[in-house]
């Protein structure tokens, strides 16, 4: 599948590199100092509410917009100056999809693959008909929004590229089609493609992503390793009397404390933790996991800090 052997960044583990990437429109900072790397072969999630800078980031990576400051490279190609080379190696599914209604489904696939030198048409037809169950003989104007999205997804997954950038790929899909798309994302990763998955449905991002970046008002506020997160336990304990200090080797990180009650993050072995808890005066104990929603809410929930405001936002 790899098309990039011999290209400038083909030997590097980081495939997309952003260094201080910023985009400013007059007084409005759409993206501020984004420094980030997407590694080869991973599914990388971009999270954030509308206006947080996800689509701006993607458009800068594709060379559709010129950065105000900083730079981004894909396979070592500068995204603005080498946008054509970047787009040769990347397939993009736009978030707000519009298609020429006068063409049939097959006509759209032919057109899109024609723009890539005619590559991937057979596979796109196969995905559209067999996986997405589309009637390619119908005019696109008679397709529902979800059907149009399926058609574009079929083309995106069929393109012989190393990187897929999917901007809200499941937003208009029914639950079974969402399931199919997540499977296609996993298949893409299995054959070595790198996928950037921007979305709002946290359960989907959690299900497929290896790492997740959370954006807020154009700033990168957090990057989470989802494999590490899947080993994360939340330990809530209340103690009788003086609360004990946990030993360092237990790898407990204090999240919150309220009187004698503690909430810790725990990523280590469970047995030593349980032994320690048995030795100290524990009055109450709960151990659970934490989904991505809780992490997201730290930055975008109702209790999130709002102290980063500045007049040039």
């Amino acid at each position: 599948m790899s098309l990039v052997a011999g290209f400038p960044g083909s030997g590097s583990a980081s495939l997309i590199v952003s260094e201080g990437l910023s985009k400013v429109y007059g007084e409005h900072h759409a993206l501020r100092d984004l420094t980030l790397e997407v590694r080869r072969g991973e599914v990388f999630g971009l999270l954030g509410p509308n206006g947080s800078g996800k689509t701006t980031t993607i458009r800068l990576w594709l060379g559709l917009m010129r950065p105000t400051r900083g730079k981004a490279t894909v396979f070592g190609f500068d995204c603005w100056r080498g946008g054509l080379e970047v787009r040769r190696l990347v397939s993009y599914l736009p978030g707000e999809l519009r298609m020429p209604g006068s063409l049939t489904g097959l006509g759209v696939l032919r057109f899109l693959s024609g723009l890539r030198g005619g590559e991937g048409l057979d596979r796109a037809e196969a995905i559209a008909e067999r996986v997405m169950k589309l009637d390619l003989g119908r005019k696109v104007r008679k397709y529902s929004t979800g059907m149009k999205q399926k058609l574009a997804l079929a083309q995106a997954f069929a393109d012989p590229v190393d990187v897929l950038i999917l901007d809200e790929p499941t937003s208009a899909l029914d639950p079974s089609a969402r399931h199919d798309v997540l499977n296609l994302v996993r298949e893409a990763r299995d054959v070595g493609q790198t996928v950037v998955f921007s979305g709002h449905v946290l359960s989907e991002v959690e299900a497929v992503c290896d790492r997740v970046a959370i954006l807020r008002r154009g700033r990168l506020v957090h990057v989470e390793d989802m494999h590490a997160r899947r080993h994360l336990r939340m330990v809530m304990a209340r103690f009788d009397g003086e609360p004990p200090a946990p030993p360092e080797e237990l790898e407990l990180t204090l999240r919150r404390m309220h009187g004698p009650a503690f909430l810790w993050e725990h990523r280590g072995e469970l047995a030593p933790l349980l032994r320690w808890l048995a030795d100290v005066p524990t009055a109450d104990l709960a151990i659970g996991t934490e989904d991505l929603h809780a992490l997201y809410d730290q930055y975008h929930g109702p209790d999130a800090d709002d102290d980063e405001e500045d007049p040039a936002r």
Partner: peptide, 14 residues
Amino acid sequence: ERGTLDMVMSRPVS
């Protein structure tokens, strides 16, 4: 305005 330019310009087209 229609949003159809994205479909073309996100492909390898100068």
